[in-house]
Amino acid sequence: MMTLPEEEFAEVQAEAEHVRVPSRARTVAGRFFRTRQGRLGFALLASLFLLAFLGPLASPWAVTDMDFSAFMQPPSAGHWFGTLQTGTDVYAVTLRGAQKSLLVGLLVAVLSTGVAAVAGSFAGYFLGWTDRTIMWVADLLLVLPAFLILAIMSPLFTSGRWLLFVVMLALFLWMVTSKIVRGMTRSIKEREYIKAARFMGVPSWIIIFRHVIPNLASLLIVDATLNVSAAILTETSLSYFGFGIQPPDVSLGGLIADGSKTALYAPWTFWFAAGGLIITVLSVNLVGDSLRDAFDPGAGGRA
């Protein structure tokens, strides 16, 4: 049996060494940052986070401080965003609220979309009793009055247990998406690349995470984007009735609810919180859109 000449062999070898196969995450990240929209959205979201978490250090006022010499004062050198009725610094309190709202929004979105993806794809992939159980739970949660339950549970969210609130909110947001995911999984399951993986001996749960869910990426990203807004807005409306994030925590929603009463004659009590909310939702949408495009294998601009 003949072998390759040595030098030719070395050549092939050397050429082969040069090829770097990018991982999926790297490719997606690369494509994401190649679009202007993606960069803008990411920059906006990152600066919101930086502002919310580092911004308070730049101001002499803490949330708990009350300036008894300035009640309901418009923005000034001393209080950049003005003060509230109580003499609380609006800058400090808005940033504190933004911290919670950003965390709540993103966590709820990731959690609920994640649950929807996993529940829906497992139901659609395995069918049978897995499917019946998961869909029974989903249907049950759909008929429960979410708002009422959250309102009743609101006392539990006090004294810093806002994470419980996140979990409860996520619990009521995944069902519809999971049904869509289930339907799409059933059709994706018939695709030949899934069959090929199955006949190769790839375990089912790996097939779901490697082939099914990535191919639902567009749907899931759009859903997560919407869920960020939905979570922040739901929290806002709950806050309006006093059922949202409970003191001592504050949220943008709570601030907007409070500020709306004084918005007409003291616009700073309302608009800084509302503006923060709008920019958050906008940047999340920008990021979501670009992420969806980045996941799309048909999109151009790859190496």
């Binding site: 196969v21 990018p22 999926r24 490719t27 030949e192 690349y193 069959k195 090929a196 993986a197 190769m200 001996g201 790839v202 375990p203 790996i206 490697r210 082939h211 990535p214 191919n215 990426a217 996941f295 294998p297 048909g298």
Partner: peptide, 18 residues
């Protein structure tokens, strides 16, 4: 029969990984 979201490397490596 090839997952459109995977590189050729990942596709060919899949059975090996499994």
């Amino acid at each position: 029969s090839l997952d459109p979201r995977m590189t050729v490397h990942d596709i060919v490596a899949e059975p090996l990984l499994a």
